[in-house]
């Protein structure tokens, strides 16, 4: 019966290999990988337009991922999108005058929340809200404004800058 045993062992190994591959795909290449970050705290931010921002979109500071979007709701009073961000506990030293903006990675890439650190001596606590936010930059709006005014106004130039920076970085 040595023959039969070896089939069974071989089949067992094959099934193990298959499940290992499935486990790898599921945990390393999908959003599940982002849940590993362990301890997090939540910050809130309101945007007038979140563009293509999705659940689990990354939150980055200086290009480094520090957390992800954990909830997106519409604030029924302010009529703005209220976004909850889970930030890794490792990055708990965020000044409370930091700002949050929605950027696009690349021209057609995915959107993410970029955090610009402020200079306040006080740090964010769990549940705090960003006071300064910058909504998603709509390509259509931008083009429209170019066509109307010939050149972007200074404020919009500022807004466009981080996105352009980012473009080069990626």
């Amino acid at each position: 019966m040595a023959q039969r045993r070896s089939y069974q062992v071989g089949t067992g190994l094959f099934i193990l290999l298959g499940f290992a591959a499935l486990a790898y795909l599921a945990t390393q290449t999908t959003s599940v990988a982002n849940f590993r970050q362990g301890d997090t705290y939540t910050l809130k931010a309101s945007f007038t337009n979140i563009g293509q921002l999705k659940l689990r979109s990354p939150v980055k500071l200086a290009g480094v991922r520090i957390g992800s979007v954990s909830a997106i709701e519409l604030d029924p009073v302010k009529l703005q999108a209220s976004v909850k961000l889970s930030i890794d506990r490792h990055y708990s030293e965020l000044p409370d005058d930091s700002s949050a903006a929605i950027f696009t990675s690349g021209l057609l890439g995915d959107q993410y929340v970029g955090v610009q650190p402020g200079g306040s001596p006080d740090m964010f606590k769990d549940g705090d809200e960003f006071l300064l936010t910058q909504s998603s930059l709509q390509l259509e709006d931008l083009i429209g404004k170019f066509l109307v005014s010939g050149s972007p106004k200074p404020a919009e130039q500022d807004a466009a800058k981080p996105s352009a920076d980012n473009h080069q970085k990626e």
Binding site: A26, T29, T30, S31, V32, R65
Partner: peptide
């Protein structure tokens, strides 16, 4: 990180 953000289990 792009992959893990956009692929759903």
């Amino acid at each position: 990180s792009n992959m893990t953000t956009n692929v759903d289990v």
